[in-house]
Design a protein around this nucleic acid. Structure first.
Ligand SMILES: [Mn+2]
Ligand SMILES: [Mn+2]
Ligand SMILES: [Zn+2]
Ligand SMILES: [Zn+2]
Lengths: 143, 143
DNA sequence: TACAAAAAGGCAACATTGTTGCAAAATGTG
DNA sequence: CACATTTTGCAACAATGTTGCCTTTTTGTA
């Protein structure tokens, strides 16, 4: 596992540093997306806030993670599964926000649908956000 | 027009005040969504920042406006066209973010598609964000 | 219209979040 | 190990969002 992390960094031509390894491991060991705040808390007092910002920025640019829009001013980030490269993502899955556990999940098997736009509009990227109750919470809340 | 604004406020059991009239008129006279920052700038030095926050919050709760998620940590707001009520919105349209003019449009005629979720997931609301080039920009950028 | 109660606004103080420049430390390469 | 390059931590700052409290405005009613 520790090896896998270093490999991901090297594959992306990034030097292997403590903060990058730590933050990447957080993503690898957490189902669901993480916000900047989540990472800051989970990484503990080990790293500076600025380092977290810069690391996320770097991971984004390299296509290691992708940003997930939300309506509450708190971007979430998640690992890219496909072969995303610098500046070009191939994430055509939808995102699910659980209102109960507040986790954000990448539903990698659900492909974003085609959208027929009005004349003149050209689509470049489509994000689908579904809000509801996730599988786990549904099971635990069963009446 | 000035009458229409007062009517909207009264219909929602809100007292008619200068800031509410002003902010509501900004929405009525602007195609596309507005962020908190946009409103602060457009409203000029006339109102306190806190008043803008509180007014948007009130409009949201009353279902006068709805929030549009983005991937850049800046919520946009737009008028609700349908009969949205306190706590319950009926916005099933998609949102278009123009990468050129940076406007956000409600495409009221495009209905959000059905999404088939994995077993166990229950959807409550679906947001579709399309990023690309809008009608106006497409026309002006034609080569 | 005058009045009292209720609601909203302005202000100040504060908290949180994000950005920048720079010097110190760590990393990769030979 | 030495050196050039990259990354980090820190400090200072900017931007954004929140709260409490007092004043002003609005509203319903007499
Ligand atoms: Mn995802
Ligand atoms: Mn809309
Ligand atoms: Zn859940
Ligand atoms: Zn445009």
């Amino acid at each position: 596992m520790a090896l896998e992390i270093k490999d991901i960094l090297k594959k992306n031509k990034l030097s292997v540093t403590g903060s990058r390894e730590k933050i990447l491991s957080l993503f690898l060991n957490h189902e669901g997306a993480l916000s900047h705040g989540d990472i800051e808390k989970k990484a503990g007092e080990k790293f500076d806030r600025v380092t977290v910002y810069r690391t996320l920025q770097t991971f984004l640019e390299k296509g290691i993670i992708h940003a997930i829009p939300t309506a509450d001013n708190s971007i979430r980030y998640a690992l890219c599964k496909d072969d995303c490269t610098e500046g070009h993502h191939h994430d055509h899955h939808i995102h699910f926000l659980c209102m109960h556990c507040h986790n954000t999940y990448c539903l990698d098997d659900i492909v974003t649908p085609e959208i027929k736009l009005p004349d003149g509009y050209v689509a470049d990227q489509i994000d689908v956000l579904v809000e509801g109750v996730c599988k786990n919470c549904k099971a635990s809340v069963t009446k």
